[in-house]
Amino acid sequence: MGRKNYFKLLSLSIAVAVLPFFIRGDYYLSVLVFMGLNGLIVMGLSLLMGYAGQISLGHAAFYGIGAYCTGVLTTHFGFSIYLSFLAGIILSVLVAIIVGIPALRLKGHYLAVATLGIGEIVFIIFNEWMKYTGGPSGLSNIPGVHLGNFQFNSSFRFYYLVWGINLLALFFSLNLIHSRVGRALRSMHGSETAASAMGVNLSFLKIQVFVLSAVYASVAGSLYAHFVSFISPNNFGLMVSVMFLMMGVIGGIHNIWGALLGASLLTFLPEYLRVFNQYDILVYGAILLAILLFMPEGILEGTPVLIRKLFRQRKT
C-alpha cells in the first residue's frame, strides 16, 4: 500500500483513539461500537463485491454464525471465549467453502442466489433449534469479553476492542488490495477472460475472498454477541444482509474507505433522524434513494463529482 494509505490509516487510528474522550454517555459510545462492527462486515463485502465483483445477499448469515456459535458455546457448554470465537470463525469458513465452491466455479451471479439461500437456512436454524438457540425469543446471558484478567465490561473499553480489530482488518485489507492478490481480484472484475490468461485462478481466488469476507462478518458477529449479551434471529435476517449491502453501496463499495464511510454513516443516520418521529423511516428511505440517484458510485467518490458538476453549472 502506498504512503497515502498509510497516512490515512494513521489519521483514522488517531481519530479513533481520541474520539471517546469527546463523547458523553454510554449510548453514543455503543453506537460507535456498532459502527465499528458494521464497518468490519462491510469492509469484507467491499473486497468481495467492489474488488472481486461477486455479490453476496446473505452476509448476515456469517454475522449470525459468529454470534450464535460463541453465544451457544459459552452459555451452554462453558467454552472459553477464545475457543468459541475460533469455533465461530472455523464454522463460517466451512460454510463459506461449502456454499462457495459450487457457486463460484460457475460464471455469473450464482453466489447471490446461493447466499440468499444460506441466509434463509441459517435464519431457520436459529429459530427452530430451540434447545440451544432459544428460538425466536433469543439467547441471553452471553458473558462479556476478557483478556486475561482485563474485562471489557464497559462501552468505553469495548469500543477500543472493536475498533482495534476493525483497524487491524483495515490494515490487512489495504495491504491485500495493493498486492499481487488484490490486483488479481480487480483484474477479475475487469475481464475474467484476460485475468485467467494471465494465470489468475478465478474460482480459487473468488472462494478465498468469499471466505475472508465471511471471517470478517463472523468476527463482528462474535463481538456483537458478547457486547450486547443477548441475540435473537431477527438480528441476522435477510433485511440485515440487505442493510450491509446498502452501507457498502451508499459509501462506495469499489473503495474500502467508501465502504467504511457508508457503514459509519448508515449506522449513525437513524440516530439523527429521531427528530422526525414516526416519519423517520420515510426520510431514511428518501435519503438513500437520493444518494443512489445522484451518486451511483457512492458518497466517497460521488461527492467530488457532484460538487464539480454543481460548480460548472453555476459558471455557465
Binding site: F172, L176, S179, R180, A184, Q208
Partner: peptide, 12 residues
C-alpha cells in the same frame, strides 16, 4: 501474476 507466489495471508 503467474511468476510470483505471495498468497492472501502473506499479502494481507
Amino acid at each position: 501474476h503467474s511468476r510470483f507466489k505471495s498468497g492472501l495471508l502473506a499479502s494481507g
